[in-house]
Amino acid sequence: MALSLPFLKTDTTIHDRIVPPSGFTARLTILTAGAMAFLAVFALTLSLATGRLAERWGGELARSSTVRISAPSDQVAAQTQAALDVLATTPGVQSARALDSEEERALLEPWFGPSLPIDTLPLPVLIEVIETSDGYDAEGLRLRLAGEAPGAVLDDHTRWRKPLVVAANRLRFLGVICLILITGVTAAMITLAANAALAANGQVIRVLRLVGAKDSYIASAFIRQFTLRGLSGALIGTVMGLISVALLPNTQASGGFLTGLGFQGFEWLWPFVIPPFAAAVSFFATRFAANRTLKRLM
């Protein structure tokens, strides 16, 4: 006769269920993992965005510079041509061209708006200089420009580019520090929650030992439960974080630093590392707590 015992699943499910499912430690673990994953998404966003920024400032802008011609109006054209001639014969200069009035308007538009009457303003002429990978001798070029076009001022962006690159790199470093702190706090909170769960389930441990359970059996039941809680909490937090990042306003047109704060392309895959990483942190934190507690309860 076939027997049906729905109350009795398998010995595997008994092992999975020996730790009572309820209690504040369950909520604490899920909440902690969720909140930390949410913050980790933003720390990751910050790190990646500042990384891009530093790369752009350090790379693209490092190879460009500007020559500004500020001269009496009747000499502007002559000095511009003289400067272009000097630049054309300067080793390390790949190309040089004067910006037209539309390009200057586009440069000023973020500050003065689109209806700026640029033709009526005494604006200097700007020459965009693109360097070769070897670069040019800035001091030598300044001397030659001073001789040929007295109103030309070379700005190789060094003055403002360097601190910006340093700032971006520091921001990226802070983002990484945030991720490390988030990992540490998650591990600490889950260790505390696991310790509390182990202490609250002293009778469960005593009963299991009475029937011959080894520490590995007891520990694995707690580890499994806390790892799953860490994983599920981190999944929720990550999804919430991703939605929040996706809903960030697009500031490409008008933003300053905030331009590009978010994920681009394959970077959207990075946050999906967070849930398994949180599960791994939960695994090791609980194993540490369980082994220590079980040893103490001998």
Binding site: L5, F7, L8, D11, T12, I14, H15, R17, I18, V207, L208, V211, G212, A213, K214, Y217
Partner: peptide
């Protein structure tokens, strides 16, 4: 039943 079967699982 699960309590009685516990030693087997252990």
């Amino acid at each position: 039943a699960e309590n009685i079967a516990m030693p087997l699982s252990v």
